[in-house]
Computed example of a mutant assay.
Amino acid sequence: MGQLSERSAGTAWEHLRRLPVWLPPALLTLAVTLTGLGSAQLWRDELATWSAATRSPGDLARLAGTIDAATGPYYLLMHGWTTVFGDSTIALRAPAVLAMTVAAGLLAGLGARLVDRRGGLFAGLLFAVLPGTSRYGQEARPYALATMLAVLATVLLVTALRRPSWARWAGYAAAVVALGLIHLIALTLLAAHALVVLIAWWRGPAAAGVATRDHPSAERDRRVWRWLVAVVPVALLAGPLLVKARTQQSRQLNWVNLARLDDLTALPGGVAQSSVVGGLLVGVAALGAARLGRRALLPVSAVL
């Protein structure tokens, strides 16, 4: 019986190895987020999305100018979506389902690039079963889209650092601009990207943990200004939005306490929607980072 179990496990792993690394996590995430998608009624913030998405572009412009500039681009996107697909509960939540599905596949691909295929597959499958994945994947709010764009921008950064070209940096720039327009606070990810770019420029891709396993000694590219050029559109497009949103803080977030340093202790549990799961994630991440060494620089700094 033991030999049969081992043989079955080996056969299952061989079947998994034949599939693209992104496919199992994406399919599992799709199944998780589709389960019971329309069973719960829209809650307060989702009703705000429905209200904004069903308004005219002119009304949305006035809304952004007076109350909610930070979420304006997301509402405009959802306006276009509901115009095509309707404003039912499932239609409103469908973009979040698709975004988390794509995020899981991209995460698996990123893990395979930075570590190996097994590591990428594990990361994608773990992401698929996290409580936060089903939560944000079933919510008509911008968080799932921000998650997808953050992972996409990181994947494109690794690609551009390995094989620099204007086309790859342009793709990275587009992803970062979209990330900033969807969720301004998500632009804090640029601090992690800047760190990796600086180390890659100073000591090469291997020192930054983004060199391929086949070419660990890839030459460093001193054209770090390409990254600076890539983030210029972010400043031009998201900058005015940030300034406008800052003036609306008292109307939008006056009921939310300012973050303090000791709030970080509750952050893993908040992200994972479970303090136990959040604590386990921190433990697994710490063990993985210790084992990966330099290759952990990008994912760890991105998380921070």
Rank of each mutant, 00 (worst) to 15 (best):
R93N: 07
D68P: 09
W13Y: 07
V197H: 00
Q3E: 13
L267E: 10
W201M: 12
V177F: 06
T33P: 01
L16E: 00
G293M: 09
L190R: 03
D262E: 11
S301Q: 03
G270E: 06
A96D: 01
P142M: 13
R226Y: 05
I185P: 03
L98F: 12
Y143G: 10
E219P: 09
L228N: 02
M100L: 13
E14W: 08
V176F: 06
R18W: 06
Q273K: 15
L47F: 06
A191M: 08
T159K: 07
I90K: 05
Q249T: 15
M1I: 14
V21Y: 01
L126Q: 09
L63K: 00
G38S: 11
L287V: 15
A150E: 10
W166T: 12
A103D: 04
G288A: 15
L114H: 01
G137Y: 02
V197L: 01
L149E: 08
Q248R: 11
L228T: 05
L4H: 03
G209D: 00
Q138C: 11
A218C: 01
T35M: 11
L16F: 07
R62I: 09
A9C: 03
V224K: 01
V256T: 08
L77G: 14
P164W: 05
A144D: 06
V229M: 11
A230Y: 07
G279T: 05
V177Y: 08
V284E: 03
G270Y: 10
E139K: 11
A286K: 04
Q248F: 03
Q138R: 15
T11C: 06
Q41K: 12
V277C: 10
F85R: 14
L190I: 04
G111I: 12
V282N: 07
A207G: 03
D45I: 15
G293S: 10
A99R: 01
G80N: 06
F122D: 01
S56A: 11
